[in-house]
Design a binder for these strands. Structure first.
Length: 311
DNA sequence: AAGACGAAAGTGGTTGA
DNA sequence: TCAACAACTTTCGTCTT
């Protein structure tokens, strides 16, 4: 395994117990919970297996198969000149025709893929997404091209949609907003193509989990690990009470973090949390209110207020 | 003065007839 | 295809610290 030995110590607590979460592209200090580095480049082998079926195919045999190469490293050609010597004239013609069509179709698709995958790599590296996500996105895009789903849509928007879908599948949450910024496509356009291609390709996506956003938000707000885990607790409770369904996950994450910070005396303004999470204060307030009502946190908050007065 | 709170009106997307 | 609807945003006035 590649050692990431250039990050040796946690800048916060000096601990050396760093945990590298490859899937999410984050390095987390196990001692204090600080996200030391996020959105990092994944240096892992690009043909790392993701499940046992793929591991059969991918492990140590020949050139790595990768979807980020436009033809997956394996071009297809119909026939070869050497094969044709001992065929009759008719058959020969047929072969030529087939070859011509194969060529036309594949060059059209391949040309598109070449461009698109370059764009995909650009956006992906801008967002510092792990390789696994990039691969997944490339796979999705390839499928989309083969089904002719790109026609009538800009290539870039489909790339953005594919990337977003891949992020969701790998639980590496990036908001539509971030994707939009990285790709230069309007947010609603990204969302639209995302929905379109997932529907057409029948890709099932789990609703994104608010908890997945916590480490990143928490780190941006420089909150303690204690607060971070507290907010996870709160959100888990909220999920049990079905307070989370139908609500925007970022709003929930933001509210959870806000409450947790309040409880642990690391108060951040609603504005600050809202900015980091990409929602408005109003949304945080609404979620926050619901959390207090349903989770019996009101007393805790009251106690805290008294405490503050005493001090 | 800044932050928190909440009401009201507007936006974009989903759903169901 | 259209209207109803829920979630979220924007805006703005009021209260609290």
């Amino acid at each position: 395994m590649v050692d990431r030995d250039y990050v040796k110590k946690c800048p916060e607590c000096g601990g050396i117990n760093l945990f590298f979460n490859k899937e999410k592209g984050e390095v987390i200090c196990k001692d204090c919970g600080l996200v030391v580095e996020e959105k990092m480049v994944d240096f892992g082998q690009e043909w790392r297996e993701f499940d046992s079926a793929q591991s059969e195919q991918r492990r140590r045999t020949g050139a790595p198969i990768t979807y980020t190469q436009y033809d997956q490293g394996l071009g297809t050609e119909v026939g070869r000149k050497a094969d044709l010597y001992n065929l009759g004239a008719k058959t020969k013609n047929k072969f030529f025709r087939l070859r011509k069509w194969q060529y036309r179709i594949s060059t059209a698709i391949e040309r598109n893929l070449k461009l698109a995958l370059a764009e995909l790599k650009r956006v992906s590296s801008y967002l510092k997404l792990p390789k696994s996500v990039e691969e997944e996105a490339a796979r999705i895009y390839t499928l989309a091209v083969q089904r002719g789903l790109v026609r009538g849509r800009s290539m870039e928007s489909v790339v953005a949609g594919a990337l977003y879908a891949a992020c969701r599948r790998h639980e590496v949450p990036r908001t539509l907003d971030e994707l939009s910024e990285a790709s230069g496509i309007e947010e609603k356009e990204v969302g639209r193509t995302y929905r379109f291609i997932t529907r057409e390709l029948q890709i099932t996506i789990l609703p994104s989990n608010p908890i997945d956003y916590i480490p990143r938000f928490s780190s941006s707000l420089k909150l303690s690990p204690k607060t971070q885990s507290k907010s996870v607790e709160i959100i888990e409770l909220a999920q049990k009470q079905e307070l989370t369904s139908g609500r925007g996950p970022t709003g929930i994450a933001a509210a959870g973090l806000y409450v947790a910070a309040l409880i642990n005396g690391e108060k951040r303004t609603q504005r600050e949390v809202a900015d980091v999470a990409g929602v408005t204060e109003v949304t945080i307030r609404n979620r926050y209110k619901e959390l207090l009502e349903k989770l019996d946190l009101e007393e805790e908050i009251k106690k805290l207020k008294k405490k503050v007065k005493e001090d």
